[in-house]
Nucleic acid binder design. Structure first.
Lengths: 109, 109
DNA sequence: CTAATACTTAAGTTTCTACTTGACAATTAT
DNA sequence: ATAATTGTCAAGTAGAAACTTAAGTATTAG
């Protein structure tokens, strides 16, 4: 069971790179092979494969090799790790503002 | 007017670093000064200031100096840039699955 | 006035990351 | 069988990023 901390680290590290985000963007339109993925990205296929490894380890992408073709698709659970982290921060911040507002309009402590 | 593309790049780059995420986490509990922020992070104050510059340029954090103390607080708009990017990917992916499901259960094209 | 606090800035170091090259393996097409 | 396609792997390189050190500035406390 991978700690949530580590999962968050990996997901945000993965999304920190613009090329990897471009890959996720592409895959959000549907699954495609590694070479199709690589074509518009002006880096070598080997570099794309390295990005895919990071994306897969982070849980953002799932890949499956059939014959000589590896097909890649988005793993929505990966994205939700990042989404949850953000929402948690926001909710803490907003709760704090609420408490502060309550204290200002209704100062009974 | 900062292009949305650049904003997304900066925000995800900023969130890609664990120390900067720790800073955002701390700040989500309320505004604090640079030195208070630095205390639990075993890096020098200078390093923290450098992270804060990146966080501020990305729009995730706002700081204000009064006297000799710089107070830092979260800027929720920054987080929403990241949130929106994620939600956009997810919605594309889910729409695609819907179309696919419709085609399977109701194949009239 | 002096000392302590709270940063700020610049420069240098180290560590990490993305990328390339080149050789190779497996699968599919001719 | 041979060639083309699709991807894999390891090693090396260049540039970016994180961090430190050291010296300096502005503000506040004693």
């Amino acid at each position: 069971m991978l700690s949530q901390q580590v999962a968050v680290d990996r997901v945000f590290h993965a999304l920190g790179d613009p090329t990897r985000r471009a890959i996720v963007e592409k895959l959000s339109h549907g699954p495609i092979s590694v070479s199709v993925l690589a074509k518009p990205l002006d880096i070598t296929l080997a570099a794309v494969v390295q990005h895919l490894q990071i994306l897969e380890e982070s849980g953002l992408v799932h890949t499956e090799k059939i014959g000589r073709v590896r097909t890649c698709r988005i793993e929505p659970k990966g994205l939700s790790v990042a989404e949850k982290w953000i929402e948690d921060r926001r909710s803490l911040w907003e709760r704090r503002l609420d408490r502060l507002g309550a204290l200002l309009t209704d100062p009974e402590e």
